[in-house]
Design a protein around this nucleic acid. Structure first.
Length: 228
DNA sequence: CCCTGATTCGC
DNA sequence: GCGAATCAGG
């Protein structure tokens, strides 16, 4: 898979909402956890408390030099821990509607990242993000179009039986998988009294044999023991 | 062991 | 730019 704009947007959204790289990789599909992390870093999405990088101590030399040219000891820019500037020491912030201060502060004094509150996020089938009660992402409704035009069915679905086409007398056997562009229903005439056509009734309903009855063995491929 | 993110570096 | 390999911590 490749990083399309859409997939990048999904990555950003999930990453910023605190999903783990593994979860994001699973939801996006076709990419590994490492790919997600790598992409996130390339996109500049950093921060996020990592289990391994909790400390701020500049312990160099030990961390995995692996074939790396020794970095010329550049003049250490002595950064004061906190910004020396403090004309106004009182950071009076506007009352943001943040429900609960989950983590005090993983962000060290260095990075100027807006504290992304780590939230418990679950991902529903299809990849949508379930929102908590206080999670209002402020969905700005787009400006309404001048007139609403009925969406035209995609080419893949043209002529297929869609969900809206289902009645009590057409077969509701699903064809394909939900979410796929060509997902539709069988649409054949129904077997009276059943939700499916005759063929799919055969798939949906298996004869219930009495207990103890031996099911006839499945046909063996060529080379099986001879049965007389 | 499992998990996590960070980092490096060959492609 | 991409991501596997690797590191390092929980």
């Amino acid at each position: 898979m490749s990083w399309t704009d859409e997939r990048i947007d999904q990555l950003k959204a999930m990453w910023e909402r605190g999903l783990t790289a593994s979860q994001i990789a699973d939801e996006l599909g076709g990419v590994s956890r490492n790919a997600v992390i790598g992409k996130a870093h390339r996109l500049g999405l950093q921060s996020r408390p990592s289990p391994v990088k909790a400390n701020d101590a500049p312990k160099k030399a030990s961390p995995a030099p692996r074939k790396l040219a020794p970095v010329a000891a550049e003049p250490e820019v002595t950064r004061v821990a906190a910004a020396p500037i403090a004309p106004v020491s009182a950071p009076v912030r506007a009352p943001a509607p943040q429900p609960a201060p989950a983590a005090p502060a993983a962000s060290a004094a260095g990075e100027a990242a807006p504290p992304p509150p780590p939230r418990v996020i679950s991902v529903g089938p299809g990849g949508f993000l379930r929102q908590g009660p206080g999670d209002q992402q402020a969905p700005i409704p787009p400006a309404p179009p001048r007139r609403l035009v009925p969406a035209k069915p995609s080419a893949e679905i043209a002529g297929k039986t869609s969900l809206l086409d289902l009645t009590e007398r057409i077969c509701k056997w699903p064809m394909g998988h939900p979410g796929e562009p060509d997902f539709h229903f069988c649409g054949e005439a129904v077997n009276p009294g059943f939700p499916y056509c005759v063929e799919h009734c055969g798939r949906a309903y298996q004869a219930q044999l009495p207990r103890g009855t031996r099911r006839p063995p499945p046909p063996l491929p060529f080379g099986g023991p001879r049965v007389r």
